[in-house]
Design a protein around this nucleic acid. Structure first.
Lengths: 252, 252
DNA sequence: GGACGCGAATAAGTCCGACTAAACCGAGAC
DNA sequence: GTCTCGGTTTAGTCGGACTTATTCGCGTCC
């Protein structure tokens, strides 16, 4: 939650895409620059190995100060997208060095047309992690965990997945589930997976009227975890992820 | 591989830990600042919710320019460690917002005394992901994948885990295995897990003379994958991770 | 007396211009 | 031919000025 870059359409009428300052309603400037460069890179417009224009030239082309531009590049560097050295310039690193799990990078990846192969990979990761997480949650959940999950489930039922509140509740449910594993590494993964899932569900919306009601499946998972039945929890979660994959696949 | 911050001991004789410019042999300056602040935060010296000193003051205290300091803070922001807003200052975010899977953050986490609970969590994540990865690899590996794994295994056998080359070969083996899954999301995870594992093995070395020879276990995994036996690959990998956990636990 | 709104104080955000340092590349010496 | 040594290019650092966005306190109005 709380990604801090949301930029409107990019290209002006002009030929070259120049970042305009959206004026009064602009996010932080370096955020916009990072978003612009990040999407360029992730989308492949600037291929790995290529070196992007020099700071001075590029900053001027984007009509921003060199400081702001540099800070944006630092962000990309921190996420493993680029590497810069004196004289050699700033080059895009091979994809294997990118922090694909970083929520912002995922956001950039999904800001254009999403790569269907990558979506498949993400669901495969979910299919590996979430059932195992459900199993652990069933073994370790305490009273508070159960309550958090129950509350999220109730909200989910009240609003549907068609509303923002409903999707937020869905995320809350999964967050609470991961939290119930009492494993910080898994919780960290949940942030990434959650971000990815929320992007895919956005695309699911595009093909309107999602056919299936996801609540019953969630309830099955919840019941198994509350009952402490690890095997049942894992199995229920597996089917839940499989169904989500199927829904997503249909809408792409 | 290729983390770009390596700083020697931090505190001077003086009372307050001031970053000195390590002179001739200094890494990039903002890297050092980011490392300094990052370890402070991850180690808990600056607790979540606390707000750190203002840019001007802190930059002067560290004897660096405000630009360099700011760029370092941008890195922390990109990794979800802090958030800064005008007037309110820069605050440390709750742990749940941290990108714990980021290799650099992991490096900072392991630069001091590692949190044994977190190490346990990491191995639990390994135990979830790697067997599943081995299963996928067994189903999808192609000729090149097998060759890469065989080569890494050979190098591993030649040098032992006691040498740098040996540990590098170990990492290569796991990287090749993840690559063989042909799943980019899993590959991305491998970077994080690999980084974490390399840190823990460093601590394993501390308790010298690791009792077990890991090569036979790796061979079992390799054979199963080469043979395309998914179940056997998963099982072999599970025991391998379990043994690694046991070794690590003994040395902490 | 409490809520609302307005205005200052403050800290981050942006801009600018100069200087430093590092790495690459080509010219010259051996 | 290789090696070395500068020169050139590009990122890195510096510093200082100015802008913008919040927050907080104050006063006013209900």
């Amino acid at each position: 939650m709380a990604l801090d870059d949301q930029v409107d359409g990019v290209d002006e009428a002009g030929v070259q895409p120049i970042t305009r300052t959206p004026k009064g309603s602009g996010r932080r400037l370096r955020g916009a620059i990072a978003h612009y460069l990040g999407t360029q890179i992730v989308s492949g417009a600037i291929a790995p190995g290529e070196k992007l224009t020099g700071e001075v030239a590029n900053a001027e082309a984007l009509d921003v100060s060199r400081s702001a531009y540099r800070e944006a590049v630092q962000v990309l560097t921190a996420k493993g997208l680029v590497e810069s050295r004196p004289k050699a310039g700033t080059r895009v690193l091979p994809r294997s060095r990118w922090n694909m799990l970083d929520p912002q990078v995922l956001a950039w990846a999904f800001s254009g047309e999403p790569d269907t192969d990558f979506v498949r990979d993400l669901f495969e990761l979910r299919a590996v992690v979430e059932p195992a997480a459900a199993r652990l949650a069933a073994e370790r959940r305490d009273r508070d965990d159960v309550k958090a999950m129950r509350d999220a489930l109730a909200k989910m039922r009240r609003h549907t997945l068609a509303t923002d509140a409903g999707r937020a509740a869905d995320r809350d449910f999964h967050d609470a589930l991961l939290e119930a594993t009492h494993n910080n590494a898994l919780v960290a993964l949940s942030a990434s997976i959650g971000a990815a899932v929320s992007w895919t569900t956005k695309y699911k919306q595009r093909a309107r009227a999602l056919p299936r009601d996801p609540v019953p499946d969630h309830i099955k998972v919840f019941d198994a975890i509350a009952a402490g039945d690890a095997d049942a929890a894992a199995a229920a979660m597996r089917t839940l992820v499989d169904l989500a994959l199927e829904d997503t696949r249909l809408s792409m």
